[in-house]
């Protein structure tokens, strides 16, 4: 593995910094409507007023999940068997995120706490580790 991790899309999330133990999704806040959004918006979609950039909470609650019995997720192959979980996670700001899930079906209960993490999906042209985000059950 390369020494440097690079987000697949730095507009969507950033890696953990300093003493943070989890990465952050990059969202927007509308002071006028007091609504939060992800990904970042150019303006509030409800009031059309200005928004500010914020980092969203890295933990939330599982709203729904499924397990896909297909062998590929993007460019990642699981071979002839296997698959992957995906879920919808509600963050405390009122934002619902769709993302892959770490673990097995036994790990996922609707209403249970989930935390943001990353996993490798390949390397970029400079040999850096490309990582994207997913959620895992918080124990």
């Amino acid at each position: 593995m390369g020494a440097i991790q690079v987000p697949t899309d730095p507009r969507l999330f950033r890696l953990a910094e300093g003493d943070e133990c989890r990465p952050r999704l990059l969202g927007s806040h509308s002071p006028e409507s007091n609504l939060y959004f992800w990904p970042r918006r150019l303006r509030c979609p409800v009031t059309r007023s200005a928004v500010t950039d914020i980092d969203l909470s890295p933990e939330g609650v599982l709203y729904a999940w499924t397990f896909l019995y297909v062998p590929r997720m993007g460019s990642i192959s699981f071979g002839d068997r296997g698959g992957y979980g995906v879920g919808q996670i509600d963050l405390p700001e009122g934002v619902r995120i769709q993302a892959p899930l770490l673990g097995t079906t036994d790990d996922w209960q609707i209403g249970s706490p989930m935390g943001l993490t990353t996993f490798p999906v390949g390397r970029d042209d400079d040999g850096n580790d490309l990582v994207t985000f997913r959620f895992e059950a918080v124990r």
Partner: peptide, 16 residues
């Protein structure tokens, strides 16, 4: 599938 950097639309098949 494949051929470029994976985005959220790649993992969220309609079936999911």
């Amino acid at each position: 599938s494949g051929g470029r950097r994976m985005g959220a639309e790649d993992v969220m098949l309609p079936a999911a």
